[in-house]
């Protein structure tokens, strides 16, 4: 059974701007949870709170609890660096390391945590690149610079880079918004594959995408989770009028 995450009374601020208000949410293990909501409602802020990336921003402040396998990641003795190793993240814009080759990018996280020899690293890179459905395209050019890849390939490389560390949870903040439909489709297929081994949480603006890939969906509005539940229910029988308004396109 894969670990889920439980969020309890989570609040987040940018300086004095109270962006997330008392969020309570259960993110199920081995499932894909989609976060939807209008621009500026706090989706990115929320997902960054899940692996302690919010505090990296100047003025970023968090209060509340986020539980991963019986451990509060905001607990007193918890090391944020270790949490980020267990909870991987993929960003909206592909951000491979331009000074590194494809192979080096794939193992850039692994190198930090494990002392593998060259063979071990190469194996880990192959495994991650296969998982990210990129291996076939790059296996003969692993030493090329990462920026020589297309945008969609770069994003899959970033996914591979996160997977290579073997996290328990994978957070994705609009991973397809910079990509064309074909690359988007590949990454959606990839997500379906990934949920067998990872708990996946994805932010998306694209409601068809949420409907296609997510098992669960949470609607965020003005810093609060208005409604969450199985995707089919949210999209066919929303309970809250605000959810309905959003998915029928009346605002947002």
């Amino acid at each position: 059974m894969l670990h889920g995450m439980k969020v309890r009374d989570l609040n987040a601020w940018y300086n004095d701007n109270h962006v997330l208000k008392n969020i309570n949410l259960h993110l199920m293990g081995g499932k894909i949870t989609a976060l939807i909501g209008p621009s500026g409602c706090g989706k990115s802020t929320f997902i960054r709170c899940l692996n302690r990336m919010h505090e990296v921003i100047r003025g970023g402040r968090v209060r509340g609890e986020v539980w991963l396998e019986g451990e509060n990641i905001y607990g007193r003795r918890v090391d944020a660096v270790m949490i980020r190793r267990r909870i991987g993240m993929v960003f909206q814009k592909p951000n491979p390391f331009p000074t590194m080759s494809i192979l080096e990018n794939a193992v850039s996280g692994v190198c930090l945590h494990e002392s593998l020899n060259t063979n071990g690293l190469a194996e880990r890179a192959e495994e991650a690149l296969r998982q990210a459905a990129l291996w076939e395209e790059v296996k003969y050019r692993l030493d090329d610079p990462a920026v020589s890849l297309s945008g969609g390939q770069q994003q899959r490389l970033c996914i591979a880079r996160a997977l290579a560390v073997k996290p328990e949870v994978l957070l994705m903040d609009e991973p397809c918004s910079a990509l064309d439909p074909a690359s988007t489709l590949r990454i959606e297929e990839l997500m379906a594959e990934l949920k067998k081994t990872y708990t996946v949480i994805i932010v998306t603006h694209n409601m068809q995408q949420a409907a296609r890939v997510a098992d669960h969906t949470a609607f965020v509005y003005q810093g609060e989770v208005v409604e969450d539940g199985p995707t089919s229910e949210i999209f066919t029988a929303p309970k809250d009028p605000r959810t309905e308004g959003y998915i029928t396109g009346r605002f947002g």
Partner: peptide, 22 residues
Amino acid sequence: PQSQREAMLALGGTRWETIVRV
């Protein structure tokens, strides 16, 4: 770019590793 630093931090890099490697 800040996105470069965040990439390394999100992989579980320390601040120092981020400076040296990225």
